[in-house]
Amino acid sequence: MSALLTVSNLHLSYGQFAALHGLDLEIGAGEIIAVIGANGAGKSSLIRGICGTEGQGRGSVRLDGQELLGLAPPEITRAGIGLVPEGRRIFPSLSVEENILLGAQLGRPHSDDPWTLDRIYDLFPDLVAKRHLSGTMLSGGQQQMIAIGRALMTNPRVLLCDEISLGLAPTIIGRLYEQLGRLAAGGLAILVVEQAMRKALQISARYYCVLEGRVSLSGLSAEAEEERVAEAYFGR
């Protein structure tokens, strides 16, 4: 399978401070990959590097042959990168429905099988009853559903999920990942950034362990040996 998104030799720096030192990674369509690593290892910088939101980058980020590095975030979103940001970032002045609809304004205008509000509600039925409430009045898990719905409405080819399990109850996390699995089965490429190593290995096909701005270990999640991953994770 040829990769849909290819990150190669990505360097990212904020002024004098360098966060990524030549990171390589690939995702294919319909694949879930996990990026794991400790705090400050460079996971968030990877997301920023792909989305183009911050920092100066060097190297290459290609989506189906198109170079994304150097594009502005709106162009990157339109190219087909959907972001579920860390901390969900729901807009309090917008209702649940408006938060989701906002995604439709940002993304790819032409898609064979565009996402609609109805399809989002099918995916997350919990949201239907609350669709006219302010987005921030919902529980953390439901807010995460809004954030995923909003990202899907951009009709992404690659979905980036930044720490979606943070602060949520295990049952909710289970349900969210179940839905991500379904989305991947539909052909979406999903990159999951996680601090929770075990969870990440369970739901992904492949994993990349990031340490100090580089990939310290990668492989098939099913074959991952916990001890070696832990070593790559903490850098011992």
């Binding site: 990168i81 972001l83 970032r89 917008l94 906002l102 995604g103 993304g107």
Partner: peptide, 23 residues
């Protein structure tokens, strides 16, 4: 309107709106 949604999103948090790819 859709533009109004964008306005309110930016008003809430310009940083978050831009991060999500809003121009």
């Amino acid at each position: 309107t859709a533009f109004g949604r964008a306005l309110r999103a930016v008003s809430d948090s310009e940083e978050n709106a831009a991060m999500l790819g809003l121009d």
